[in-house]
Design a binder for these strands. Structure first.
Length: 682
RNA sequence: GCGCCCGUAGCUCAAGGGACAGAGCAGCGGACUUCUAAUCCGCAGGUUGCAGGUUCGAAUCCUGCCGGGCGUACCA
């Protein structure tokens, strides 16, 4: 047992039904909120609960139709048995004369098309410019969230499988906090598992004391990898015969079926044959992997001479782990000795990523609470014994959730239940988000169902699941040798490539390079890590995504690099024009929106809050990246068409500078909420 | 077998039951004596896997099929 949630490579699923992470309808400063306020009184006269209808006020997809549209006349017409267009006309009266909107137009089956007045947009922009929060209100009813993310196994190097949980979880925390919720981030690390058994075993047999004195973490990592490889080798050896036999059986079965099917098999048979072929291919591949493991180990002289003496390494490691759990003094002492170094190792990665946690309560923290939670479930009649194990049987599931093994050991589920109980007792949250890969969806379904049967039915439990990081070959991302990709190496490579991009660009500047080597290095770090995070966050989290250094560092398209460039380009205007930004913000006049480009940019700036709401609605950061990309595009168009520093009139120059400043600040804040830094020059 | 998820342009991906399904890359054509051309503008590219159904309206919801991924009692 032990070990964090991302034990191996990860992939999508599940969306929880939830309510009220935010509410835009009632309040203040968002456009949707204000439009809602206009319509609410009229709708209340017609129906008891206008909220679902107000939810049908949406941004228009086609600017030709207006800025926003109210789509509630159609369902309402159905419900009331009245012509929708007539209802639409009646409801449109809400905005017949309003400083916010031009008189609405009714179109099609009953769409109410809304166009905001430039004067209103201009005023709102001025208000946003004077506001450190850019005009984004806090939610009226803050909730308490526990966010469970990252959760690596300590003592094992972090790898590519941890990046999504870490980056998505961190982003959700930032957005929730910004909107005014109370957030408790908790890194549920695996600090009590078999990996410590491995290190202890390695320590006993292979320790290089000199190396440990010099670099304890590196030596522990070496011990871990060494023992891991010994175990993998012996496992491969013992499984090889089975897999070989399996392969032979599958080949024979396929051949027999082929013969029986004849030259023209019917559809069903053809499908079955294809399935068998696929299975066969997988088995072949499995065998190849085993052989590769075996060969690589046997041809490594340092390892080869250890193989015979450590035939029983797997059992020995489990034994060391069991002793640790049972309270063996020497193993506990070693565990306490190793843990700080391991924690420091992952901590340095988090520092580089700019990720932090309020709590790091790993599995070891819950160790002495497991017995009690099992007892509680037995007492409540939720769990019962079966085949010597303690199980929770749940309606609708073929298999029970095991919380204690026949041998008395506890499981992942046990720790999760104890953790849940602790979180409820300690923080009493309204919601807990588990940012964990989709393959664990069954586990979380069962966990949540069990929680409800424990009486924890008021808290909203959400599995924020995500897909696997794939390589460019469309298979789980691995190194050429077939190993999982280490996170550290991934960051280094991203930064290395970013450095090339930054240097190439700086060299190509019209007036010659302007960045010192130190500046270049710092910018490359920000650009490289930003690109990596953005690439991940800009994907719909539920699907697998294909990892590509080239794509994530591209200057075109929806990339972090493009966003950072957009930001740097805006900031460059202020430098070049020697503009006093503070003065500009202090007393902003309404922004003038005389050209379509200015209007489109201005309106987009006011929609930042909508993007944040949307991000939280399904816990999908790609809603935020999508918004930022759209904003940057609007800015680019504006930048091409509207001279800022050389604007014809001083007031126009001021107005455009305000648009620039708001754009820069919105991008900066948006990226910050994604956990990404900006640079002033690139 | 059962369960969960996915199938959208050549490729990688967007799209909140709403009007004509959008980007980037690749392809073609334009724009640098002007605030960073690392950019921008335009053209072309689609029966949203297939067939039904629900709805005023479906890529989106339901059913069935086809294709794929993952999971499925003592790992996490």
């Amino acid at each position: 047992m032990g070990a964090g949630r991302a034990g191996s490579l990860c992939a999508p699923s599940g969306r929880g039904k939830r309510r009220g992470a935010f509410s835009h309808r009632g309040h203040g400063m968002s456009i949707l909120g204000e439009l809602g306020q206009r319509f609410r009184p009229l709708l209340t006269e017609l129906v008891d609960d206008p909220d679902p209808l107000l939810d049908l006020v949406r941004p228009s997809q086609d600017p030709a139709l207006g800025d926003y549209q109210a789509n509630f006349a159609m369902p309402l017409g159905k419900r009331l048995g009245r012509p929708p267009r007539q209802l639409a006309q009646q409801l449109a009266a809400a905005l017949a004369e309003d400083p916010m909107c031009h008189p609405p137009e009714v179109a099609g089956p009953g769409f109410i098309n809304l166009r905001l007045r430039n004067s209103w947009i201009g005023q709102r922009l001025a208000q946003a410019a004077a506001d450190p929060r850019l005009g984004i209100p806090r939610v009226e009813n803050p909730r308490t969230y526990v966010v469970d993310y990252s959760s690596p196994n300590v003592a094992k190097p972090m790898h590519v499988g941890h990046i999504r949980s870490t980056v998505i979880g961190d982003c959700l925390c930032r957005v929730l906090r910004f909107l005014g919720h109370r957030v408790i981030s908790d890194n549920h690390i695996g600090d009590w598992g078999t990996q410590f058994g491995m290190i202890i075993y390695g320590w006993r047999h292979f320790l290089d004391e000199e190396a440990y004195r010099r670099e304890p973490v590196a030596e522990l990592a070496r011990l871990y990898r060494l023992v891991r490889r010994l175990i993998d080798y012996h496992e491969a050896k013992s499984r090889r015969a089975d897999v070989t036999e399996q392969l032979a059986q599958q080949e024979a079965a396929l051949e027999a079926n082929r013969r029986a099917a004849g030259p023209q098999p019917d559809k069903r048979t053809a499908k079955m044959l294809r399935r068998m072929e696929a299975t066969l291919a997988r088995t072949r591949q499995q065998l190849e992997e085993l052989d590769r493991t075996i060969t690589q180990t046997e041809t490594d002289p340092a390892l080869a001479r250890l193989l015979d003496a450590h035939r029983d390494v797997a059992r020995a490691v489990l034994n060391e782990t069991a002793k640790l759990h049972a309270g063996d003094e020497e193993n506990r002492r070693l565990w306490r000795q190793f843990l700080p170094a391991c924690l420091e190792e992952i901590e340095s990665l988090y520092r580089r990523l700019g990720v932090s946690f309020d709590h790091t309560l790993g599995e070891s923290f819950y160790h002495d609470r497991l017995e009690a939670i099992v007892q509680e479930l037995l007492d409540r009649g939720v769990a019962r014994e079966s085949d010597g194990a303690v199980c929770v049987f749940l309606e609708g599931y073929d298999t029970p959730m095991l919380i204690r093994k026949r041998d008395g050991a506890f499981l992942y589920a046990t720790t999760d239940l104890a953790t849940l109980r602790y979180r409820m007792d300690t923080w009493n949250p309204d919601a807990i988000l588990y940012v964990v890969d989709f393959r664990q969806s069954l586990h979380f379904q069962q966990l949540f169902a069990t929680a409800r049967r424990m009486g924890l039915d008021k808290v909203e439990l959400v599995h924020v699941s995500f897909g696997t990081v794939m390589g460019e070959d469309g298979r789980p991302f691995r190194t050429r040798e077939g190993d999982t990709v280490g996170l550290e190496g991934l960051l280094d490579e991203a930064v290395r490539r970013a450095a090339r991009v930054v240097a190439g660009n700086d060299d190509a500047k019209p007036d010659g390079p302007e960045l010192s080597p130190a500046e270049r290095a710092r910018i490359a770090e920000v650009v490289g890590i930003g690109a990596l995070k953005y690439a991940d966050l800009s994907q719909n989290r539920t699907s697998d995504y294909q990892f590509s250094y080239d794509k994530m560092l591209a200057m075109n398209g929806n990339t972090g690099t493009y966003m950072q460039y957009a930001y740097a380009r805006v900031r460059s205007i202020f430098r070049k024009g020697n503009v006093d930004v503070e003065a500009l913000r202090r007393d902003p006049a309404p922004v003038r929106l005389e050209t379509p480009a200015e209007r489109a940019l201005g309106l987009e700036l006011l929609r930042f809050g909508e993007a944040l709401e949307l991000t939280l609605k399904d816990y999908r950061p790609n809603q935020l990246t999508g918004y930022l990309f759209g904003l940057a595009n609007h800015y680019s168009t504006f930048y091409e068409q509207c001279p800022v520093l050389k604007a014809e009139a001083p007031e126009l120059r001021r107005s455009r500078l305000l648009l620039c400043d708001l754009t820069a600040r919105t991008i900066q804040k948006g990226l910050e909420l994604l956990g990404i830094d900006v640079v002033e020059k690139m």
